[in-house]
Computed example of a mutant assay.
Amino acid sequence: MTKEVEVAAHHSGKDYHDPPPAPLIDAEELSKWSFYRALIAEFVATLLFLYVTVLTVIGYKSTTDPNLDADQCGGVGILGIAWAFGGMIFILVYCTAGISG
């Protein structure tokens, strides 16, 4: 029993060492092309996401406006808005995960 206590006192339970924390802002990263490539990819992904989803919501609003007398079955509906948001998130994550991490 005493031998187990001695071993436990000297062993922390980890078989690895944590690396030191990375700095929040690294000036060396600003000179790398991969940083700007990831920035461009994130910007384009956000722009596409907003474009498609906002147009879907505007299209839904125009089909439900009683002043326009539009066809009730001509729009996407609330489920279509949900699919637009979810589909765009899936597509953008799939396309930009390899670039921006």
Rank of each mutant, 00 (worst) to 15 (best):
H11S: 10
A82C: 12
F35R: 02
A41V: 03
G13S: 10
K14Q: 14
F49N: 02
Y16T: 11
H10S: 08
Y60M: 06
M88E: 07
L48R: 00
G74I: 04
L50S: 11
E42K: 00
S100D: 01
F35D: 01
Q72W: 05
V54T: 13
Y51N: 07
V54L: 14
L30V: 02
I40M: 12
K3W: 07
S31K: 13
G87H: 04
Y16S: 13
V7K: 11
T63P: 00
F90C: 06
H17R: 10
E28P: 02
D26C: 03
A9H: 07
G13A: 08
T46I: 12
V76T: 08
G87M: 06
G59Y: 01
L50N: 10
G80L: 05
T63I: 13
G80W: 01
G101F: 08
S12T: 15
A97N: 09
G74K: 01
W83P: 01
A27Q: 12
V52N: 05
V52S: 04
G98W: 01
A70Y: 03
G87Y: 02
L92V: 13
S34A: 12
E42L: 05
A97E: 05
V44N: 05
F90R: 01
I81T: 04
Y51S: 13
F85Q: 00
P66D: 12
G87P: 01
A70P: 10
I25M: 08
V57E: 00
T2S: 10
I40W: 09
T46E: 11
N67A: 08
S100A: 14
I78S: 14
F90L: 14
W33C: 07
L30W: 11
V76K: 04
G98F: 01
F49K: 01
E29V: 14
I91Q: 03
A41E: 00
L50P: 02
K61Y: 05
I81N: 03
H10P: 02
G74F: 02
F90E: 02
T53C: 12
V7N: 06
G74E: 11
T56C: 06
R37T: 09
E6H: 12
Y60Q: 08
Y51P: 00
L92F: 04
K61S: 07
I25N: 09
G13I: 09
L48A: 15
S31Y: 05
G59E: 00
R37S: 12
C73P: 00
G77E: 07
K61P: 00
M88Q: 12
G86D: 00
M88G: 07
D69T: 12
E29Y: 08
D15M: 09
T2P: 00
P23G: 08
F43G: 05
M88D: 02
K61F: 07
L50E: 06
T63H: 14
I99V: 14
E28T: 15
F35K: 00
M88W: 04
L48T: 13
L55C: 03
G80Q: 01
V52A: 10
E6N: 09
A70V: 04
